[in-house]
Design a protein around this nucleic acid. Structure first.
Lengths: 119, 119, 119, 119
DNA sequence: GTGGTCTAGACCACC
DNA sequence: GTGGTCTAGACCACG
């Protein structure tokens, strides 16, 4: 899987990496248990500081998306907590997005239709 | 309407203000044409610098949610662009949220049910 | 001639009045020598403070577009200085506009074509 | 490229900076991708507060003229939207300028000749 | 009295 | 070291 950084974006690089890996897990590009590149390898591949990749991996680990072990580097988790919950941050973001959609004239159905594209 | 700042949040204060006002517009707590507190009044009420409120109002103005007027202070816009579009940022956030929901075991229907709460 | 104020605009009201009168002179809606409403009449008609209209008239007088006399109120000048010059402010604005047009991909001819609409 | 501030101008400093940078882009003094001075460096060079430069850069960023990057500071954008459009503000200004030129006796050709100087 | 602008400091996230 | 954010004051144009 190819990580692609938008240099112009105001989203920090480490978060772009995190986001793309989460996206990859969601759409199946990254399989449970799959090996991730080492911090140094990914940093070289993208052409950024390895501290930044480190930060992304640390975040992913803390959020429960990947596991690290000293010998094998980082791997996607084998099984995810299917607890059907979202982080408070995501809930807040969702509320914000829906309120904007509401103001911009979306009906509930139109908004769901928009969501369909991402499922 | 009461603006409430989370001091420890990593979201900048000016953006928290902006978010809460957008939320207030969406759920009807703030009516079109309604008067907002003056920059200084809100700053004092919250206990922050007036420049920060100024920045929040400038952002809301730029996004088309409020109008500012040297005579009357700031007011909610009378009519909103009902163009049924979202900003690219919101679309990106939505995609990210849905991918997380997907990983956490949400079905499409369960996710929509979650959304219902915010509509 | 009807003066129409945009309450949302960030252009000061006195300047909106001035601009519309200059526009009216240019396109012939206001004839040389024509009588303008009194400060108080125009202020009432628009629903604004008469000081604001006063400021607009003072600016127009200073720029040489109108003359005031104590008995008859304000009138459009009978003859304008046809000196084929623009104020420094307008020249600066013009330069700024052309540089933006240039960056946005306008050719000279395309820009002139745009200008045609306003002549 | 040297930024030069007119202290007595009624144009806000942050806008003077913005204007001169747009001008620099237009006439090629600033090349696409070129590095801009840091906020602090430019502030010191001009002898103003860094917040003011910050505001100018934020405006330029919002208008799509520059990109800011925590690693490399601010740079001129590599590619501009060549959409051949002007902002409503610029269109309004243009109409105003042309009406003034008209009153001052400019023919269309004479006005275009004036414009040539800025292309 | 309003929002808009500016100053001279400061701290923080990011890289 | 970078831009982004924030503070505690101040002055100004506008109405």
């Amino acid at each position: 899987m190819v990580i692609c950084i938008d240099e112009v974006s105001e989203i920090p690089i480490y978060k772009q990496i995190r986001n793309q890996i989460v996206l990859g897990i969601s759409d199946g590009k990254l399989q449970p248990g799959e090996q991730l590149p080492t911090v140094r390898a990914l940093a070289e591949e993208i052409g950024i500081n390895s501290m930044t990749v480190n930060k992304a991996y640390a975040l992913l680990k803390q959020e429960g998306y990947i596991v690290t072990d000293r010998r094998n580097g980082a791997r996607i988790r084998n099984e995810f907590d299917q607890g059907k919950y979202l982080s408070q941050t995501s809930l807040d973001n969702l509320q914000q997005i829906i309120s904007e959609a509401n103001i911009r004239g979306f009906s509930k159905e139109e908004f769901f239709q928009l969501c369909e594209k991402y499922f």
